[in-house]
Amino acid sequence: MFFYMKIHLPNSAFLGNIDPFIESFDSTDSSKLEITANKKWISIHPVILSMVASIGLSIQDKSRINCEDFEATSKHYLERMGLFDFLGVESGMQITEHEPAGRFIPLTQITNSEQQTRFITEMIPLLHLQPEQAEPIKYVISELVRNVLDHARTTQGALVCAQFYKKSNTIRIGVADVGIGVYSTIRASHRVSDDMEAIRKALQPGITGTTSKEGGTELNAGAGLFFIKSIAKVNRDFFIIYSGNAMFKLLKTPASSKRITLHSDPFDDRSSKKDNLPNFSGTVVGIDISLNRNQAFDYLLDLIRDTYFDRIKIKKKEKFKRAKFT
């Protein structure tokens, strides 16, 4: 059963300080969705927009959505990102001009792989990125959206948006769905006791909800989320996944740590974990990608390969076939 919620859009909520936002929303009132906002300023990560839009979209009867008239001058940002359209709320605002500095991907609903491919092709010009900067962003969105299409079991699909932040030179990405959540997906094939344990499994390479066998099936390797967490880790950025009552947050790797090590078990990463949060039946994933520190994608792949190598017994290596490249 899906619970409607009360949501307050705060003055500021990004991945580093998103916890109060999540802790504050009320998922116990199943009668309607109420949205309120900070009166002066609203500065929020795209992942919050994706989450709120996915909830709003799932409510068929839009009269059960009560969105107060926002007073904050930054409410235009929410209009520009398309939030009110997904909520079915008339904002009364007119956005006629594309801001010169506006580098963003507005809220987009993706329900099938053709839409996904088209979206990825069309989104990069909106962010005005160099090809090497675009590579991890395309990768992250492709894998996260496909996860929703493969596992979430919702006809609503994925809600995606992203925003470039000039001051920090960072792209922030949010993907959300109101599907069955990580626990239900993982539990289908693995023994897990709660939402956090399911998230832990989902982030480990080789674990997928579609089979109990390590290495996955012909269609799912169980490596997608591990790759995405690794992109954040290598770039020393935040990554969060929130589903059910639990949220795992990969914390920034300090600049003082010169060597980056990827961990198969996310609990070995520098992270925060909360498992008593208000219930969100679907899944929310947010990631930041700092363009200043955007490590070459090839370097990330080297680290991932090394992580796999570490998992393999030396004696087996000798028997391994290599791919032939010509």
Partner: peptide, 26 residues
């Protein structure tokens, strides 16, 4: 894998193929 040649792969694609080949054999 003896029957398949991967041709004209750039560094990124080659590395991804190697990772997949490796973990599948594992």
């Amino acid at each position: 894998l003896d029957e398949i040649s991967f041709k004209n792969c750039n560094t990124t694609v080659e590395k991804i193929i190697k990772i997949v080949v490796y973990y599948m054999q594992d």
